[in-house]
Design a protein around this nucleic acid. Structure first.
Lengths: 251, 251
DNA sequence: GGTCCGGTGGCTGTATACAGATCCGTTCGA
DNA sequence: TCGAACGGATCTGTATACAGCCACCGGACC
């Protein structure tokens, strides 16, 4: 397996499902979501349907729908004065979502490691092979990718576990959780150390899960998610402080 | 506290937030949701924007929005042939959602019983008083209410715990969980026995939580939710079998 | 008889006009 | 000078027309 193909897979989920061929509502939604995640919109800025329609060369109808979707995903909040504005990240809200993530990740890794179905076990094994390849390829990749993009590889790992759990509801809720904390988790992988540690942790979890060692797998997963939460909280704390100083957002 | 006022509180949440004054989209959404929960729509029936607009004396625009909301709440699914149709309940999907509910209820009761904040502790105490009153009033209420309506009282108990946990994300996800299993949970409270047992279990949980006995509270909550799952699954199993015999839905 | 192809109806996606609510500035009066 | 009412700008909610897609159906050809 070449480093290039691993790199391709790693970057595949970067912008989410890249549906250039989708409806106008999809286009607007994806574009705004990307802007929000990249921090291109300041938190005071109001997003007004008419203006967005003009910007995306479409009418208000698709824009309306896109804004509603962004709202239910927690990316924007309604402004009493009309329109919506980017939902400023708060440390307290992040802690709440992470607490939910802990218990959901524990649930899916338990189910996956218990491995009732043959198909689930095989899915775990495939995931393990992928991450073995990624570890192999990392020395070459580290100069070729923007490290924050690694968050998408990380998400695909956790999504893989959730799939292997066979619990579709848990998968759906974990996706929602990821959607809500992605804007912050981008700040997780900013050093090579963090990425290399993450790769090792993922492989340890997969080893335990594939071996059916439920207790080991859940313990490792708890440590893994805990570490991510700590790193993100530390980084985000200083980030929010900086934005606050700059008068860009409210805490 | 009179039985009447308890009854009033108990039935308050019956139809969800009853916003007769809301937008047309809200009206359509609430009406369709009520129909779906009451089982007034057969699972084969396609809901088409134009027809619904005529039925509710409005245009397609609010109907569109209502259908999208019902879709994200899992009440309807898109039909490849156009429109949406009621999402037929499946036992396997119910088990998945209940597995998520287990871990979320465990999380919130843990947080609530740990009771970091004074306000949370007071909220728990108020909830306990409400259920003491409900137990008191039950002998009179049992002839005055449709027992399935008790599901709304039950939900308000669990929502109260989630509020007292102080974790807004968990509260949001539990609301979503409730939204998805309500159509089935209606079949939980069809006997006086079940209702009386539920009241006692709620009070035991609240006693433990108010006393800060975390382990006891979580154990009681687990037993409580487990019992609900069993009862619902048994009832729903026969219900789905009957619908299937009648050719109304697909499994 | 089966399969492929083109027509056709139905439904969604989108554009656009209009109505109603709300907020802000201004002006008039005390 | 302060307050209240008026007016206008702005934005969302809703109605409606139009365009395009897609499944379904019927017929022709293999």
């Amino acid at each position: 397996m070449s480093a290039d193909s691993v790199r391709e897979r790693l970057l595949a989920g970067r912008a989410g499902p890249d549906r250039a061929s989708g409806s106008a509502a999809d286009r607007v939604h994806d574009a705004l979501r990307a802007d929000l995640l990249a921090g291109h919109l300041s938190y005071g800025e109001r997003l007004v349907e008419e203006q967005l329609a003009e910007r995306f060369h479409t009418s208000r109808t698709p824009v309306r729908e896109a804004l509603r979707r962004l709202e239910t995903d927690g990316h924007v909040v309604r402004d009493p004065a009309g329109g919506v504005r980017p939902n400023p990240p708060r440390v307290s809200a992040m802690r709440d979502v992470y607490a939910v993530r802990f218990v959901l990740e524990d649930l899916v890794v338990t189910l996956a490691a218990r491995g009732a179905g043959q198909a689930d076990r095989e899915a775990l094994e495939r995931l393990r092979v992928e991450w073995l390849e990624l570890r192999e390829a990392w020395p070459q990749l580290r100069d070729q990718i923007d490290w924050p993009d690694f968050v998408h590889a990380d998400e695909s790992f956790h999504e893989g576990i959730a799939r292997a759990s066979g619990n579709r509801a848990a998968l759906r809720y974990l996706r929602d959780v990821n959607e809500r904390i992605r804007v912050l988790r981008i700040h997780d992988f900013t050093t090579a150390d963090r990425i290399e540690a993450t790769i090792e942790e993922h492989l340890e979890i997969l080893d335990a899960a594939c071996a059916g060692e439920v207790a080991t797998a859940t313990a490792l997963m708890a440590t893994h998610v805990e570490a991510s939460a700590s790193v993100v909280e530390a980084r985000v704390g200083t980030l929010l402080a900086r934005m606050f100083d700059a008068g860009e957002g409210e805490l």
